[in-house]
Design a protein around this nucleic acid. Sequence first.
DNA 1: AGGCATGTTACAGG
DNA 2: ACCTGTAACATGCC
Length: 290
Amino acid sequence: MPELPEVEVVKRSLEKKILNLRIKKVKINDENLRYKIDKDNILKLAGKKIKKIERRSKFLTFKINNNVFMLVHLGMTGKFFFSNELNKKFKTSFYYEINEIKDLKHDRVIFFFENKRKLIYNDVRKFGFIKVYKKKTEYLKNNHFKNLGPEPLKKDFNFNYFKTYITNRNRCIKDTLMDQKCISGLGNIYVNEILFLCRIKPSRKLNKLKDFEINKIVKNTKKVLKYSIKLGGSSIKNFSSDDGKKGIFQQHFKVYGREGEKCSNTDCSTIIIRSIISNRSSFFCKRCQK
DNA sequence: AGGCATGTTACAGG
DNA sequence: ACCTGTAACATGCC
């Protein structure tokens, strides 16, 4: 379920659990993730501590001591689980309930810490990956960050940037917002939600956007992402609560997944429709989004 | 059986 | 070299 807000929530949650813990052992159950895991490198993490966790777009970076860096992308179905010394599993994010037996099969990599604590990387579809860089220079050169546009929540994603970016391009707004080169961290769910709030239909061409709409897109992008992070992100399945903190943003989806339902804008009861744009479902209200 | 699913990227064509 | 659109990757659920 990971778009920017979910990855951010995972990051914050992991910080509380594994920061400064020493890795004792790494076990690889399935090395064939999006990229084949470099066993030599990942096994060498044993004995080292996790010093810092950062997020860039939908990527997580674990800074390990001795200038070692571990880069993780959750793909479509990647999740982290943490279990403590009692071998009782706890969620590492706020929004996954663990069905231990069912999920065992998809536990791809396990990091063992002292006192029987474990961090489990679980990924059903294996679109996620884990890469280890032995040197800071190697990490900085990694090709995943090369073409990333600005972080939506930072100041460099603003009206001027966005207006300049879309000038002389012709594409529809939905594809543009999904394009990580333009803005990094959005995915299908949040783009649908943002465009609904902006009352712009996903297929609108960039050259037909008015300045006030460009401004609205920038503002609503920040608003939706912040609100979702505040609610602990969203999840379509495997969702449950534990200690009262849970990701509940999916309860606030206004269009995503709501094909056939009535538009949630007041004084509109048009049925939300779904259409495919660039191989991805788009949900929108024909009446409100122009 | 066939369609669908939160993402990225290799590739082809302009 | 840049821009854009498409298909593929692996797996499970309706």
